[in-house]
Amino acid sequence: MIGAIFSPRVLRGLLPPLSLAVLLISIFWLQPRTMSYFGLNLLLNLAVPIALATIAQMFILCVNELDLSIGGFVSLVACITATWVQETPLFGLLALAALIAAYAGLGALIHIRQLPSIVVTLGMSFVWLGLAVLVLPTPGGKAPDWIRSLMTLKPPMIPFPIIASVALALIVHVALMRSAGGTVLRGAGGNPAALARAGWSILRIKMTMFALAGFFGVLSGMALVGLTTSADANIALRYTLLSIAGVILGGGEFVGGRVSPIGAVIGAMTLALAGSFLSFLRLNPDWQIGAQGAILIIVLALRLLIRQAEKRR
């Protein structure tokens, strides 16, 4: 019984939440002020758009591709949200829908022409950034009131960022991990040949996954503008690497098919909190990027240890 609890499989599943818990407890200890409704809200609200971008990246990683353009894409969405969606809602929402369609098109392009997704998305990152500068040449714009009031919602008892993250993790988990359709989508990453032989269209699956990534990228940009109140063409460039690191930190892998939505959200939270933790430690900023990398390496090294224990059995 006790052996089952400490089996490598369970341990591997527990690693992301445990890392988050350790980080959160250290933060509470360093700065007791964070242990309040107000504190948790401030600590976690910027993690919500990162979590959404991480989920977007997870869909791409799930079909064995990599998206290097998500940061630029989220920035573009932020710029569109702060301008067009605010001024002419219908046109703005249409533009966002077109962006999701463009993402699906990218999936089709990558699949049909058998292009490396890294190259295509790296190229697209410049396209998104260029479009963002065209939409909003100088920083500005204004968040639509409904997004602003949603993101600054103060529900009783539990801070909004926590509710939003839990809801996001559960919804995507049920849809991708527990439903028949979700299993097929994941299968396309794990063993596309088998799925194709069974009669599924890999093209359609890839387009679906890229469209889903685009959809969550759009949500991420809108959430970000809701928090910052206005946009900047460079606002989310960091999200590209954060989202990849978040998926991997949450137990996902680069091989395709092996992802975890709950883990991805936890991974995104962990990365967002790692920055706060280091700043509460009063660590010299020159060391902070390195320290953030060190946290990543420690968690991944632990995972490797667990996997080796798994093999030994």
Partner: peptide, 16 residues
Amino acid sequence: QVTEQAAQIQNLILQG
């Protein structure tokens, strides 16, 4: 980066 500085400002609020 904007998002990083926004997080930094929120941390400074929490640091009192």
